[in-house]
């Protein structure tokens, strides 16, 4: 039987998958209480690469949902070859858009926010997809934080478009703000390169 069968034709015995434009790596870390730089790097674990839609869902359906992760853990989904660290060449001059969701009012919805962000990335829905490095979801005591890491950090039309699209893809309540922070800038609270959308 040589007919080409996708998962929509035969979910059990399909013989062809849907390729993604990029290969993506899923990372996980939970530095726990000893959260210094050295232990963070050691705790960062590369879990799996996916380069098809089918493989992405197979993994996503079999890992712990964000709302069940331990406090202080993070999932990272980055383009293959980019480590989810500021020091990586792709991130060195970059920054991130981030959104905080209060845990008590967010609950399980965090799973959908995170999923919608990953799907927009893997499906290459961002207009300037070359700018995209990856995304992170962080579980903290009182909030969840979702962040989109991009390659550059100068406020311009490109970056603002990505920020607006991020809000749109996450279906964000308009009262929530999306903050842009250049990497390495978190201590400088008055940085002129920070902005919100």
């Amino acid at each position: 039987d040589n007919t080409v069968k996708t998962v929509f034709h035969d979910p059990k015995n399909y013989n062809v998958k849907h390729p993604l434009q990029n290969t993506w790596t899923l990372w996980f870390d939970n530095p726990g209480k000893k959260a210094n730089a050295a232990s963070w790097s050691q705790n960062l674990k590369e879990i799996v690469d996916v380069n098809t839609v089918e493989d992405f869902w197979g993994v996503h359906n079999n890992i712990v949902k964000v709302n069940h992760l331990e406090i202080s853990s993070n999932y990272h989904v980055f383009k293959k070859g980019i480590r989810p660290e500021w020091e990586d060449a792709a991130n060195a001059n970059g920054g991130k858009f981030s959104i905080q969701f209060p845990r008590n009012r967010t609950g399980e919805s965090i799973n959908d926010y995170w999923l919608n962000l990953i799907l927009a990335m893997l499906g290459e829905q961002f207009q300037y997809e070359d700018e995209i490095c990856g995304a992170v979801v962080s579980v903290r005591k009182v909030f969840y934080r979702v962040a989109l890491w991009i390659k550059s950090s100068e406020k311009n039309e490109k970056i603002e478009t990505i920020g607006r699209q991020l809000k749109e893809f996450l279906n964000l309540n308009t009262s929530l703000t999306v903050e842009f922070t250049p990497h390495g800038d978190s201590a400088a609270k008055t940085s002129e390169n920070r902005f919100t959308i």
């Binding site: 979910p11 839609v53 992405f56 869902w57 197979g58 359906n61 829905q125």
Partner: peptide, 14 residues
């Protein structure tokens, strides 16, 4: 995303 979400219930194993 609408296209991608269709796979959610079909690709259960890895």
């Amino acid at each position: 995303s609408a296209f991608l979400k269709q796979f959610q219930v079909l690709c259960l194993d890895t």
